[in-house]
């Protein structure tokens, strides 16, 4: 041990954890690096932007709900492949996914984000924040883009991103967990593996602290998403009930 690891977690165990979680991430990351490179980072043309902007609010909300749900399905698969996740009781698996799946979608967003142009891959091309104007959530959209930009600035490797995503999913402080201790153990091990990886990759000491700040930023983004959804649902209850993906409704209590 180099003093960073607990006496019960060996270096070999941490290396193994890094390998397994990285593999799970790559198998479920929705877009591979090679695919992303082939996307040619094409931006929407002005008339395409205007066409999104002129969509009725409910149509744009539905489109975004569908895209978020697609991304979340991959996160669920990721969670299932994290060592120990499927050994948790089913209540806790659900609690962790309800609270953490959208957070991981936001973390993964940096893979499909172009910092230079402030655009994100959406519906086949790269979209700036103005594309989402019809949602009526400009402040939230700006915050999501700012978050993606700041994640990009950390230049995390796929391995580091994988470990951070697992760390987020295994947050032991989520409300309604039944076997908190069990989750805590898994999260601690994941954190050790992340620290171990950062050291191995010779990242500067500040990266882990920067990632710690991201945890609260993610929570804020997700609670604001819930607020916006509540406001939307208050005006369009039938659209949410009949047109939104069932998984989205289960996760966000719509």
């Amino acid at each position: 041990s180099d003093g960073e690891t607990s006496p019960t977690t060996s270096m070999a165990e941490l290396d193994h954890l890094v390998q397994v979680i990285s593999k799970s991430h790559l198998e479920t990351c929705q877009y591979l690096r090679e695919e992303l490179q082939q996307m040619s980072w094409q931006n929407f043309l002005q008339d395409e932007v205007e066409s999104y902007q002129s969509k009725p609010r409910e149509v744009m909300w539905q489109l975004c709900a569908v895209k978020i749900t697609e991304a979340i399905q991959y996160v669920v698969e990721f969670a299932k492949r994290i060592d120990g996740f499927m050994d948790l009781c089913q209540n806790d698996q659900i609690v962790l996914l309800k609270a953490g799946s959208l957070e991981v979608v936001f973390v993964r967003m940096c893979r499909v984000f172009d910092s230079q142009n402030n655009t994100v891959y959406f519906d086949g091309k790269f979209a700036g924040p103005e594309v989402f104007k019809a949602l009526g959530c400009d402040d939230l959209i700006t915050s999501v883009f700012d978050f993606a930009k700041s994640m990009c600035s950390l230049h995390l490797s796929e391995d580091e991103l994988a470990l951070f995503s697992a760390f987020i999913l295994l947050s032991a402080d989520r409300t309604w967990l039944q076997e908190k201790l069990q989750v805590e153990k898994l999260q601690q091990k994941t954190q050790l593996a992340l620290q171990h990886l950062l050291q191995k990759n010779q990242r500067e000491d500040g990266v882990l602290n920067k990632l710690r700040f991201k945890v609260s930023a993610l929570r804020s983004l997700c609670s604001r998403h819930t607020e916006k959804l509540s406001a939307f649902r208050a005006v369009y209850p039938d659209i949410v009930r009949t047109h939104f993906p069932p998984l989205y409704k289960e996760l966000f209590g719509a």
Binding site: Y74, V76, E77, K98, P246
Partner: peptide, 20 residues
């Protein structure tokens, strides 16, 4: 359980990303 039917299904299925 009924409240999280889809999540339960996804957790129980042995799906692969290709199936998604």
């Amino acid at each position: 359980k009924e409240k999280h039917k889809i999540l339960h299904q996804l957790l129980q299925n042995s799906t692969s990303p290709v199936d998604l």
